[in-house]
Computed example of a mutant assay.
Amino acid sequence: MKKNVIVMGQLSTAQWSELEQHFQLVELAKPLDLTQPEVRTALDEAHALIGSGLPITTELLDAAPKLEVIATISVGYDNIPVDELTRRGIMLCNTPDVLTETTADTGFALVMATARRVVELAEWVKAGHWQASLGPDMFGSDVNGKTLGMVGFGRIGQAVARRGALGFGMKVLYSNASPKPELEKELGAERRELNELLAEADFVCLTVPLTAETEKLIGAEQLAQMKTSAILINIARGKVVDENALIDALEKGVIKAAGLDVFKQEPLSVSSPLLTMPNVVALPHIGSATHETRQAMAQRAVDNVRLALQGERPISLVNEETWT
């Protein structure tokens, strides 16, 4: 008898067919309504969940006694109770590697857009204000040759740093990571304590995972340590930054600008002051949002589910204890 897989995310026709060869598939919409009999029935028989933004709660897990694996179509899993899954012997799989370069592209696009005021000036032109040559009050800042400070130096952080060092001749600093001698040799990167990096960098780019230690890692105290000409880039998680402190720092000129792909609350509230600030470039969490990358992420999740339910080790297993 085929095992049952609940699909809660976009799969291509080919990916759906691949899973359907081996398993019985049930498609459910988010958010799950556990009061609905069909949802309860599906969970009661489910051996796997696959999708993005999965709403994993203790109540859901209690309703899915046969669950063996959850495959999230994302790298981050801060919204999933990993310890509880491990306690129950449920494997959690994510999709690292396949979105590294795409997310780094987004990060560096924010560097360029904020430094050269791309969004602000494009809207200025569209509004018909370009009647004469620009004056100094409309000038941007150079990127080439500046100092790029990476807070977090994992796969994505390293990819952003390569773009800066090799493409734009930037000096690279990094913190919140173990020493990386090979990258120091390759990119000329230098390791700094966080306060030192904040004081030296022209661009501070956040790529750390969200943990208890990194929540509000960048607050009023840290923003005050940055140059008044510095720009903050966040492609990590919104809660890594104290958003109220950032708004205050931008309003008072403590830092020059911010490029943000993530926020404390998503979607960003229409009442957020960030939406009306000309020195803010705000994106709708598009770090991995390309056709190619999203398909690759979904395929990794499909592969993880297939392998796990067939008794083989998944490619991207988060809680190793469930396998060993």
Rank of each mutant, 00 (worst) to 15 (best):
Gly164Asp: 05
Gly164His: 02
Gly164Tyr: 04
Leu166Met: 11
Met170Gln: 07
Lys171Glu: 14
Lys171Arg: 13
Ser175His: 08
Asn176His: 13
Ala177Lys: 00
Ser178Phe: 13
Pro179Phe: 09
Pro181Val: 00
Pro181Trp: 00
Pro181Lys: 00
Glu182Arg: 09
Glu182Asp: 15
Leu183Ala: 04
Leu187Phe: 03
Leu187Thr: 00
Gly188Gln: 02
Gly188Trp: 03
Ala189Asn: 02
Glu190Ala: 03
Arg191Gly: 06
Arg191Asn: 07
Arg192Ile: 00
Leu194Thr: 02
Leu194Ala: 03
Asn195Lys: 12
Asn195Thr: 12
Glu196Trp: 07
Ala199Cys: 09
Glu200Met: 10
Ala201Asn: 09
Asp202Lys: 01
Val204Ala: 04
Val204Ile: 14
Val204Pro: 06
Cys205Val: 15
Leu206Thr: 07
Leu206Tyr: 03
Val208Met: 00
Pro209Thr: 10
Ala212Gly: 10
Glu213Cys: 04
Thr214Ile: 01
Thr214Gly: 08
Glu215Ser: 07
Lys216Gly: 08
Leu217Cys: 01
Leu217Asn: 04
Gly219Ser: 14
Gly219Leu: 09
Gly219Met: 06
Glu221Arg: 15
Gln222Asn: 02
Gln222Gly: 12
Ala224Gln: 13
Ala224Lys: 11
Ala224Asp: 11
Gln225Arg: 09
Gln225Cys: 02
Met226Tyr: 01
Met226Glu: 01
Ala230Gln: 02
Leu232Ile: 11
Ile233Asn: 07
Ile233His: 01
Ile233Cys: 04
Asn234Pro: 00
Ala236Asn: 03
Val241Lys: 01
Asp242Pro: 02
Glu243Thr: 15
Glu243Leu: 05
Asn244Phe: 04
Ala245Asp: 05
Ile247Asp: 07
Ile247Tyr: 08
Asp248Arg: 08
Gly253Lys: 06
Lys256Phe: 11
Lys256Asp: 12
Gly259Ala: 06
Leu260Ala: 13
Leu260Ile: 02
Leu260Gly: 10
Asp261Val: 07
Val262Gln: 06
Lys264Tyr: 15
Gln265Cys: 06
Gln265Lys: 15
Gln265Thr: 15
Glu266Thr: 02
Val270Thr: 15
Ser272Tyr: 03
Leu274Ile: 10
Leu274Ala: 15
Thr276Asn: 15
Thr276Gly: 15
Met277Ile: 09
Pro278Leu: 14
Asn279Ala: 12
Val280Met: 12
Ala282Val: 07
Ile286Lys: 03
Ser288His: 12
